[in-house]
Amino acid sequence: MGGKCPHRNVKKRRYSHKTARRTKFELKGDDMVYAQLNKPDEERAPLPLDEDLPGMGQYYCLHCDRYFSNVAVRDEHFKTKRHKKRIKQMMGPAPHTQLDADVAAGMGMPDNGPKLMSM
């Protein structure tokens, strides 16, 4: 009696909760967030109204890719340590891209040919 059940896996149980799965699968990649942050203010579109999101999708944290129900909750989120760590990370160097991998492997910059005349 008391033998270990062969089907109950601690690792699977540990990683199947909501926060872990969201962190791993649903968050935007670092390069997407970085590109959004470095986009000039004119090109930033206002957040679209979406009834499926909390707060109609209007209270959004771009660094952490999270939606909040109202301004107070979002401002409370801005004080959290995780958010501050995320801000510091996004202020650092640009994330790794395929271009960086190509250049590190000994290839030159891509050749896009001559610039076409605009009609």
């Binding site: 190509d102 000994g106 290839m107 030159g108 910059m109 891509p110 050749d111 040919g113 001559p114």
Partner: peptide, 10 residues
């Protein structure tokens, strides 16, 4: 010599 190997999009 790195310039000889590059992705040529044209």
């Amino acid at each position: 010599t790195f310039e000889f190997e590059r992705k040529r999009n044209r």
